[in-house]
Amino acid sequence: MSAGRTLELICPAGTPAAFRAAIDAGAHAVYCGFDDETNARNFPGLNFSRDEMAEAIKYAGRHGAKTLIAINTFPRAGASRLWSSAVDDAMRLGADAVILADLGLLDYASRRHPALRLHLSVQAAAANADAIAFYARSFGVKRVVLPRVLTVQEIAAINRDIEIETEVFIFGGLCVMAEGRCSLSSYATGKSPNMNGACSPASHVVYREEGGELVSRLGGFAIHRVAAGQAAPYPTLCKGCFQAGDYRGHVFEDPASLDAASLIPALAKAGVTALKIEGRQRSRAYTEAVVRSFRRALDAHAEGRPIPASELRDLTEGQQTTSGAYRKTWR
């Protein structure tokens, strides 16, 4: 096996402790968000104050790593100042890039802060070369995070036709709806993941043990009933278990997590620049274990060695993994 191209490892952090854990475990860059609605992991007790973000950026800089700030929700009408302030603060604090999805916010950032590097969030759902070229041409976007609906072949085709970098998800929770356009959680809770920043907000989730079964309710709707001994999923409607006629099961998708470690050589060959780990809502234990595992895999790939076997299944939703849309075996 010949030495491969070095890929950048982009790692999640929901707290300053997880941020340090990611850097110490070998992250090339860490993505994180402010403690408000401007990012898509707006959960209680999570995220960074302005002071914490400043400290984190310094910590990353001292260790030769980058900080990417996700401001990837869509500004609500009449409240856009919250989002533009977040962009201003990211620039002021010295972020290496911001990850944006909204057209208006991209326009604001590119005009107000031309030196600020812009990445296009997966929330923008740019899934073809023409859409990506538009973002690059109009706002100077330097990197696009591709939606999790593309095969490796489709990613290679996109890379042949665009002039900016691509970043793809390599591990973590799957959200296979066209990202940024899912209204399932909004329907059940009245809160939008894309504007309020939380899919299945904790304030609308209730768990109860009923006769040995774990029952999960979202906004009053029972969406899971998991028997004793079976793995539990996140309380999201997309992974809900429903009954229709004689059928009882998962309608949209099974609770499983992405683990595409074995596809690292193929993704590198497809022209991908960076690999992203999902999980800003997770603990520092998750961050440390997953980042360390993938840094080992990337180093092995760069040195031409086989990718080591993954030992991360215990950490995954549903306790099972999939290569997702990268290999569309159902086609």
Binding site: P44, G45, S203, V205, V206, G229, S283, Y286, Q319
Partner: peptide, 26 residues
């Protein structure tokens, strides 16, 4: 241990105010 992983494996049970639990865990 990761709290979500313990929840997935059913080693951890949470009831009541889920937002409060998340805030405490984080």
């Amino acid at each position: 241990f990761d709290g979500d992983a313990l929840f997935f494996s059913r080693d951890l049970i949470i009831e009541g105010d889920t937002g409060a639990v998340l805030a405490l865990r984080n």
